[in-house]
Amino acid sequence: MTAFEHLVVALAESVPSRAGGPADSIAVQVTDLRLDLPLEARFDDAGLLATLPRGLLATGFDHPLDRVRLTFVLGGSAA
């Protein structure tokens, strides 16, 4: 389990925002990213602790899965 904000950042990091470039003669840019994922979560003093489900390692005594939907948009610029 990790703090929910770290999971959000890790998910945003997991997808490349662009591909290609001058060497490929073409480049593509992701403008928005929508994720719809199952989630294992529990409450903590700091808010929500969360992790993605453990899949094949599940024991059968796990918490019921929650769900999270995230929409990221490309934005910001170098300061």
Binding site: A3, V9, A12, S17, R69, T71, F72, V73, S77, A78
Partner: peptide, 29 residues
């Protein structure tokens, strides 16, 4: 926590990446 997530994502823009993802909507069940 969401504020901290936005701050962490924005931090990447300051480390040299011209564009980065920002969290716009979030739904949790």
């Amino acid at each position: 926590q969401l504020d901290r997530a936005q701050d962490l994502l924005a931090l990447k823009a300051r480390t040299g990446r011209p564009l980065t993802f920002a969290l716009r909507d979030l739904a949790v069940e």
